[in-house]
């Protein structure tokens, strides 16, 4: 994988917490094109890390340390973990309200993110952005549904004009397809042949509204209407996902044609906190299909050990972040 470093990178060492506690997640990994180096245990560890990180956030919320709200991706962690190694430093990534996993998998920077969400010194956006508004290099998240899709088309057009083989990737949900901006963007992306990738994390529920009362037709047929290539992923097996998607993404880089990826996934937790209206039996059924239960090639013993190490790492992180001063808005003009 070729890497073009086009942005100044933010200092990853914030000095409060030892990133090596997620051992195996080498901070330099993304710069080195590390796809071949990732073992199933590395992937598992990162997914567990994202899950325990968000569970810690929910606890911190209960304890009154989080101002506002927080949307967790519990159940969906494997989506960014499988995708991120396929992306390059020069690619644009647009995330959404449910973006902690996207950020953690992209930058391996739990400290900057937790400080951001708790408004502490060391926050990646000085505590101004909070959970839903993160910017770092070419990574942007915003909290308005569908807003980032035409923006990603513009970024992709800029990439195309520059001659770089980079892509602009935007994460949306199944509910986002209710926004007209998505269709305006798909139309322009296909008309102009720009390297746009829409990753739809289809968890079947938009806040509290299930997809069967939200969407007529299908995502596949909507992509087809705009003559846009479509790929659906219906399982959670990371190695297979990567081999399926690396070809599709390479196609976008080479042809400049847009792509829609539908990841069939499941949201195990509530939309934000405590606002889940689904049947308990449905949640139980989903939990039995959770990647945590289904992962291959790692013994139960190893899983328990990794989980234990991660929990320890998260405890240190929380302790350290809580001991920090409130952030100051240095960039305020």
């Amino acid at each position: 994988m070729s890497i073009t470093n086009t942005d100044q990178s933010t200092d990853l060492t914030r000095g409060c917490w030892d990133p090596c506690l997620i051992s195996g997640c080498n901070l330099r990994a993304f710069d080195a094109g590390f796809l071949g180096d990732l073992s199933p245990e590395d992937d598992f560890r990162l997914m567990v890390f994202i899950r325990r990180f968000e569970e810690a956030l929910l606890r911190l919320f209960q304890e009154g340390h989080v101002n506002g709200t927080t949307h967790t991706c519990i159940g969906q962690e494997y989506v960014p973990v499988s995708l991120m190694p396929l992306l390059q430093t020069g690619d644009f990534i647009f995330s959404n309200h449910r973006g902690h996993g996207h950020y953690l998998a992209r930058f391996l920077d739990p400290e900057g993110l937790m400080c951001e969400i708790l408004g502490r010194e060391g926050a990646v956006c000085q505590g101004v952005g909070g959970s839903q508004h993160i910017r770092r290099d070419r990574y942007f998240s915003t909290g308005v549904q569908g807003e980032s899709v035409p923006v990603a088309v513009g970024a992709a057009l800029g990439l195309k004009r520059s001659g770089a083989k980079h892509i602009a990737l935007t994460f949306i949900g199944d509910g986002t397809w209710g926004e007209g901006s998505v269709y305006e963007a798909l139309n322009m992306a296909s008309l102009w042949s720009v390297p746009l990738v829409i990753v739809c994390e289809n968890n079947g529920i938009a806040q509290t509204t299930p997809i069967n009362v939200n969407m007529a037709g299908s995502i596949a047929s909507r992509a087809a209407a705009f003559d846009v290539t479509f790929v659906r992923v219906e399982h959670q097996r990371i190695t297979e996902i990567r081999s399926q998607l690396s070809e599709a993404l390479e196609g976008v880089r080479q042809t400049g044609r847009p792509l829609v990826i539908e990841m069939m996934t499941q949201r195990l937790a509530s939309h934000s906190k405590g606002d889940d209206t689904r049947d308990e039996s449905e949640i139980i059924r989903m939990k039995s299909r959770d990647w945590f239960e289904q992962i291959d090639g790692i013994t139960m013993e190893r899983r328990a050990k990794i989980d234990h190490d991660v929990l320890h790492a998260i405890d240190s992180l929380v302790e350290c972040v809580l001991a920090r001063e409130a952030s100051s808005w240095k960039g305020r003009s």
Binding site: F92, L157, A168
Partner: peptide
């Protein structure tokens, strides 16, 4: 809306 989005992305 879309064209302003594209402008923003540019």
């Amino acid at each position: 809306g879309g064209l302003l989005g594209v402008a923003n992305g540019l």
